[in-house]
């Protein structure tokens, strides 16, 4: 399935909904979109992975790049993911200790202090 990228605003967060396959072929498009968002002023960014069918190391590298970019810009970055196969990828790579990962967009965009951290 082709990569799909849709942006919306939820509770003052920029939510990028990603669908399809994120791999060595499509990851550059995800990287470009994330850079565009930050360059356009987005500082609280959430990437929703619920419609992602496949995610490889290249896609993970793009997500880490976005995390670092937002950290530099004093922003926040979080992921939404409740799919066990994807969560297993984050655990195996230890990236579950790097990204704030939330089960829902609502949880990721809460402003009570439990939301994404940089």
């Amino acid at each position: 399935m082709e990569l799909s990228l849709t942006t919306r605003t939820v509770a003052e967060h920029t939510v990028l909904e990603v669908g399809g396959e994120v791999d060595v072929y499509t990851a550059p498009r995800l990287r470009e979109r994330l850079i565009e968002l930050v360059d356009a002023g987005a500082r609280d960014v959430v990437v929703d992975l619920e419609r992602v069918d496949f995610l490889d190391s290249t896609g993970l590298g793009v997500l880490v790049g976005a995390l670092k970019r937002l950290r530099t810009a004093h922003g926040t970055f979080g992921l939404v993911c409740a799919k066990e196969p994807l969560l297993k990828i984050f655990r195996i790579t230890a990236l579950d200790q790097v990204f704030p990962i939330f089960p829902t967009v609502d949880a990721a965009t809460e402003r009570d202090g439990s939301g994404p951290t940089s």
Partner: peptide, 12 residues
């Protein structure tokens, strides 16, 4: 980025 992707890829 290359080192990160390589390391993560090997971990997978």
């Amino acid at each position: 980025d290359d080192a990160l992707t390589t390391g993560v890829g090997f971990a997978l």
